[in-house]
Amino acid sequence: MSVALTAHPRDLSIPAPPRAWRNILTIAGRELRDAVRSRWFILYTLAFAVLGLAVSFVSAAGTGGTGLSGFGRTTAGLINLVLLVVPLMALTAGASSIASERERGMLAYLFAQPVSRTEVLAGKYAGLAGALAACLMLGLGVCAAILAWKGVAARPASVLWLAALSLLLALGMLSLGMLLSVLSRRASVALGAAVFVWLALVLVSDLALMAGVVALRLRIEELFALSLMNPLQVFKMWSLHAVDATLDVLGPAGLYAADEHGPRLHLIFGVCLFAWVVIPLAAAAVLLARRSPV
């Protein structure tokens, strides 16, 4: 982390990193505590768990007691749920963080303390990430418990993959949300922008790509490359690849991806999704250092 570099490199008697880390931890702990006690966290956790429960129950009923299972409605439904809810959750959480502190004058106060702005950002990010992780794990854990109880033979590895990938997606969207938050002067603006970005990622970009397929006759390699730019599509393709190990479900573009990239697919998806964690957060750090805290 670049955070360590901002401390005092000359001071050898007291190693510099621990203090930066301690600052980050302090802020993260406080952020996490506030988040876990806030209404949005409880609301989102409940909503996610309840929706997940509904999906699990419906799909358990769908197998009709035949004892069969496979890539069907359960996995698809859970992926769909994550695609809809998790980005919204993470984007709004990130968007309201810095902007609302700024609005209340808290940011100026924090910056007056002997801590770097990057440390503040990193701390807030870590705290919110922890809260999101708790929310996701609780929600998916409840779903998995229901599936196990109803005797649906879902593979545990699939559930763990889905949890890990959802977390990575949440981290990326949180990062993007914080960038929006740093850019906005007021919390309401940041929230509005977050919802707009969410809509763009969830619906608009896919619909635009579909239009592209029909109108521009995109070749499948172009289509695949373009879809890699949307973190939600990357998440979806990666979870399908990890859960089912075949992308041919996704038609020609999926077949192309599997044939052309095969074993490298995990790496490609990983890099794409990880870029959404790192790049917006780095941009937010740079911008926060330049901007006035009020």
Binding site: G29, A35, G139, G141, A144, L147, A148, A153, A163
Partner: peptide
């Protein structure tokens, strides 16, 4: 359902652990 239940327990433990600690 054993392994799946174990996975569920793991996820719940992580989520619950973070919440409880906070």
């Amino acid at each position: 359902p054993g392994p799946l239940a174990a996975a569920a327990a793991l996820l719940l433990a992580v989520g619950g652990g973070i919440t409880a600690a906070a």
